[in-house]
Design a protein around this nucleic acid. Sequence first.
DNA 1: CAATAAATAGACACCGGTGTCATTAACAAA
DNA 2: TTTGTTAATGACACCGGTGTCTATTTATTG
Lengths: 394, 394
Amino acid sequence: MLLVKKLNHIKLNRGKSESKIMQQSQKEEKIKPLENEEIILDAQTLKAIEDLLQNKNSPTINDVASISGVSKKTVSRIINNSENVKSETRALVSEIIKKIGFKPNPQARALAFRRSFLIGMIYDNPNAQYVVNMQLGVLDALRGTGNELVVHPCDRNAPNLVNEIEDFILMQRLSGIIILPPIAEDRQLLALLDRLDVPYVRISARDGAKYDPPIDSNQIVSVDKIGCEMAAVHLAQIGHKRIGFIRGNQIYPSAHERRAGFLAGLAKYSIEIDSEIDVAGDYSFESGYEAANIILSNKNRPSAIIASNDEMAAGVYKAAYEHGLKIPDDLSVVGFDDSPLAPRLTPALTTVRLPTRDMAKMAANIVLSPQSEVAKTILFDSNLILRNSTKAPQ
Amino acid sequence: MLLVKKLNHIKLNRGKSESKIMQQSQKEEKIKPLENEEIILDAQTLKAIEDLLQNKNSPTINDVASISGVSKKTVSRIINNSENVKSETRALVSEIIKKIGFKPNPQARALAFRRSFLIGMIYDNPNAQYVVNMQLGVLDALRGTGNELVVHPCDRNAPNLVNEIEDFILMQRLSGIIILPPIAEDRQLLALLDRLDVPYVRISARDGAKYDPPIDSNQIVSVDKIGCEMAAVHLAQIGHKRIGFIRGNQIYPSAHERRAGFLAGLAKYSIEIDSEIDVAGDYSFESGYEAANIILSNKNRPSAIIASNDEMAAGVYKAAYEHGLKIPDDLSVVGFDDSPLAPRLTPALTTVRLPTRDMAKMAANIVLSPQSEVAKTILFDSNLILRNSTKAPQ
DNA sequence: CAATAAATAGACACCGGTGTCATTAACAAA
DNA sequence: TTTGTTAATGACACCGGTGTCTATTTATTG
């Protein structure tokens, strides 16, 4: 076991002659460490650490520097894992940093780096569970990186939305931005983000490259289509021949993707879509209720309904109840989102789950990592969660 | 209409003699403004502003200072609404600040002020809607104050919870903290907050002063009791004589308060509580389901059940369904929280609403305002939301 | 072994504000 | 007019880090 003695204790800003003296004494004291070195600090250093810890203020980089006997720039290099630091120096200073519990001040770093180590999450989404899952996912990725999450819900209809968000980003000097649907499709906002030169990731239900004009940015895409296709296939497999569909709000890409999945599933079983039971909705409970009323009043009532989200599926439950239909015996229902609502409905709702939290985590990781030139698109599959709201038709 | 000319354009850090010259020329140029003064800048200043706006970087306090011809300290005073600034100076500099769109850099201020203008929200709460409402309420209060919200969900069972939160607070130098239940009752955490000397507000369902030992801190208290009492009174009024109750998790004060409200309501109608239908739950859907099964299997089945939250009320729906009981005809149900679930259940659930968002807004306002010595307690009443899950017994 | 290059460390200015204290201006009282 | 007092302003250090450039060691090479 070898020792690394602390370098020395002289003041900073010393003159040249002093500097030379230091180097000499240093040479004498120091012993080169092997692997698995153990750092042992001398009594004087331990005393200095002790004294410092009495102090109520949290230690600064200057404290570390003076105790270690190096310049604060060297400490800075070690904090930031920069190159060109001798491994012994690094080991010693790291030890002292740990001993005195030094944590670099984020505001000071922010000032010097010209960015805040804050990640902003911008959204206007009514689904609380979705938003919370996204926050949790981002925090999963941020943990231990020294970054924090600043949430910024907004109103997509506010006239000065773009300006407001610009102020937010510029003032806070955000290190990165994650933007959730539906405003992740807002062209003006995306133009702003491109202009501001802040790393950002869009979360969406459809690949931006497929738009016209295409959106060229990092994005996390949930493949909503797959899940809806699985739902349709599931219903067809257990014997349903006539299946109603309630669409989402058409301004969201997700609505188109989900319906496309539904159609794809039907196509596999050569079932034709009947426009009379393919009804518009807007993702709200009420619209689901109304759409279900239309579908269930059809002279050739379907034996199953797929709703484009769980809210609307809950509306189907209400309409079924009023039509005297029992779920799943008289009517099978499938939702989308696997919201907290789904398992709590009676009977529990079969639905499609998106890996929301994982998507957000991935988004944050991309924002944190050094940006490559080409925009990344990462796809996440959705999948079907079977519960008790579907059954073979009678 | 009178004019305020800009003071002058000399460089900062000028010598004394220069300084005198400035003052003289200033006297000649300046005209005292009346109320409703209109600020007119001279051509030279406008040119300087023009030049600055070409620059891509956001303007700094030095830019404002040099254009206005005052020191940056004076600009600082104006930003912070300090005293001892001549009203003309203030008007002029404010005008220039507006013209060039100067926004003080929060990180620089944070460094100098030794606090970050970030408000932390600390919680471990599974109810997404509750959390999101709290966030929205806090943001309502923060808007326009230059503060931002940093969210910090955590795990109440983590062994190093206190240390982790201490690091969070100290490193980020939070300007204030809002802490949500249930961890707003955690004694260790509260001890930490007291020790750290950061303004914080607890949100809770029971007045901390009533604890033993009492908690002495700013707090926003929801009076859960009132709402439950109203629920019990409502059921009694429409004729229910035998009412079941499902308790919440007893580690939360809310559980006690809600049950106390229930008992108070019964007492008003001289209804006695039967311990056989006063069943434990833990706020989860499953526990509600199981408790309801116990209650509904009672030989003397009650005609109504009050559940301590909506989740458990949804569990009651499931149990009722399985017992072949129709809500509300055979069984009335009342929940608590007015979660998004409540109106989406079939039939829509009568429940108690807490003014969550308003509570959070108030909490944030307290955290932002200069702290008085005495701890504030602010009460918010809950109230009953009537929907379709209650009906006179048959 | 000297000459040269590469690795390591430090000095100093700077990021963009605020605190403290000194200085000057404005105003009231003598 | 002079003096005393308060209002208004500025100079300068400082908050706690990083960037740049220079100086010093150490390693490499002819």
